[in-house]
């Protein structure tokens, strides 16, 4: 191998890389918020007592997560072309629909892991079903699924790179553009790989420090109590 590394070309295009990084962060945040909200709603329906609600939630989950994210990107970009939405909005839509199906499954399993007696005790004390859900079931379910939610958030950040195929000028898109001009393939992709890594590590680190998630008093209960 006689490849001569030349990082100066990457440095020259640092403003493009920085712009791409900002778009990646914006895309991730803009998708993560609705992903969590929709995932909570669908997951709660999936854990509900009503068969119709469970079926509807199941259809959503299977329909959304069994289509590759790449196809989501193309489909929403093409299908909604008549709306003339900016590519960014189509990417948010694709990422949200796809990731929220995974969040819904996490939420559903989290609610299922909270002993039924908890909601029953809340009901017996006069709390209304939505109060029991909000005050008793969700806080326990969220603690149970917190580690999986954190890994889902980092998955979403990495998945946002697929938005490059519909010309959203995020990190991977900019890398492709710089590579096309400079032919410095290794340098460019190593640089953005390190940036993705740093971003994901930063998020995991931050989530780990959300108070109440790690130091939660054991929610695991005495099995035979």
């Amino acid at each position: 191998m006689h490849y001569q590394f030349d990082w100066s070309q990457v440095w020259q295009h640092r403003d493009l890389i920085f712009d791409g990084l900002l778009v990646t962060v914006a895309l991730s945040v803009a998708s993560l918020v609705p992903t969590l909200i929709i995932g909570m709603l669908i997951g709660t329906l999936g854990a509900s007592g009503s068969r119709a609600a469970r079926t509807a939630a199941g259809l959503y989950v299977e329909g959304m997560r069994n289509v590759p994210l790449l196809i989501h990107m193309y489909v929403w970009y093409m299908a909604l072309a008549f709306l003339r939405l900016p590519p960014f909005a189509c990417a948010v839509l694709g990422l949200t629909l796809y990731s929220s199906a995974y969040v819904a499954e996490l939420v559903r399993s989290g609610i299922g892991a909270v002993p039924r007696g908890q909601a029953r005790a809340a009901a017996a004390s006069g709390l209304r079903p939505w109060q029991a859900l909000l005050l008793v079931v969700y806080p326990q379910a969220l603690r149970i699924i917190a580690p999986s939610l954190a890994s889902l958030a980092s998955q979403l950040i990495k998945d946002s790179s697929l938005a490059s195929v519909i010309a959203v000028a995020e990190l991977s898109y900019q890398a492709g553009a710089i590579e096309g001009q400079t032919f410095r393939t290794f340098e460019v992709y190593i640089t953005i790989a390190v940036l993705y890594l740093a971003l994901v590590l930063l998020v995991s680190f931050a989530i780990d420090r959300i108070p109440g998630l790690r130091d939660a008093p054991s929610v695991g209960r005495i099995a035979d109590a």
Partner: peptide, 12 residues
């Protein structure tokens, strides 16, 4: 008021 066999205190 209701009291259960398995207590059902809210663990959090």
């Amino acid at each position: 008021g209701m009291v259960f066999q398995s207590f059902e205190l809210y663990p959090h």
